[in-house]
Every structure is written in structure tokens, then in C-alpha cells.
């Protein structure tokens, strides 16, 4: 039972959980909802993307570049697995 360290980081876990409820969300939504700096969010996104948990979609909205993120199938599975592992760890840590 090993916890996925990429997801286990609080900010990345929140990013993954937000995207789990949606088809996709853009950079502005994640920045404002998580109250992060743009640089900080970019750093976390990069890690999730390089792990293959996120898919980046670049497009133009009203002639302004827009970057959206979507959880990949691998990301969804990893997130589900993460909660299973974490719940198991929590269960095993309980007295009695």
C-alpha cells in the first residue's frame, strides 16, 4: 500500500479533485478557486501533466489564448486508487 506522492501533495490533490467533477476547467478557474499564484499553479500543473494525469488543451476564446485542463483516464484511475489507499491506511491506523 503506497500512497501516490504526486497526488498526495495538498494543492495537487485539490486540482485533481476539482477536475474530477468536470469535463474541463481553465487556468483562471483553478487560480481563483485555489487562491494560488499563477506561477505556483503552473508548477503543480506541470508535475501532474508530466505524470500523465492531466491533459492540456490550448485554444482561443474571443481571440485570447485560453488553456484548459482535463483529467486523463490514467489520472482518474490514479485518483480513485489514491483514495482507496488512503482510506485503507486510515482504517488500519484506527484502534480496535
Amino acid at each position: 500500500m503506497e500512497i501516490d506522492k504526486i497526488i498526495h501533495e495538498p494543492t495537487r490533490l485539490r486540482i485533481m479533485m476539482i477536475l474530477a467533477g468536470l469535463e474541463q476547467a481553465d487556468f483562471t478557474f483553478l487560480v481563483t478557486t485555489l487562491s494560488l499564484t499563477r506561477g505556483n499553479l503552473s508548477r503543480h500543473i506541470e508535475k501532474l501533466e508530466s505524470a500523465g494525469y492531466l491533459k492540456v488543451k490550448k485554444s482561443f476564446k474571443d481571440r485570447v489564448p485560453n488553456t484548459s485542463y482535463q483529467l486523463t483516464q490514467k489520472g482518474s484511475k490514479a485518483l480513485a486508487q489514491y483514495w482507496e489507499t488512503l482510506d485503507a491506511v486510515r482504517q488500519s491506523g484506527r484502534p480496535g
Binding site: 476539482i18 474530477a20 467533477g21 476547467a25 483514495w83 488512503l86
Partner: peptide, 16 residues
């Protein structure tokens, strides 16, 4: 995080 785990599980619900 363990303490907040149940709350965190509600994120997709509220996002949706």
C-alpha cells in the same frame, strides 16, 4: 490531510 479527507471528497460534488 486525513482529517480533511472527507471534506476533500466533496470537492467534485461542489465543483459539479
Amino acid at each position: 490531510q486525513d482529517q480533511n479527507a472527507e471534506r476533500l471528497k466533496e470537492i467534485p460534488k461542489w465543483t459539479r
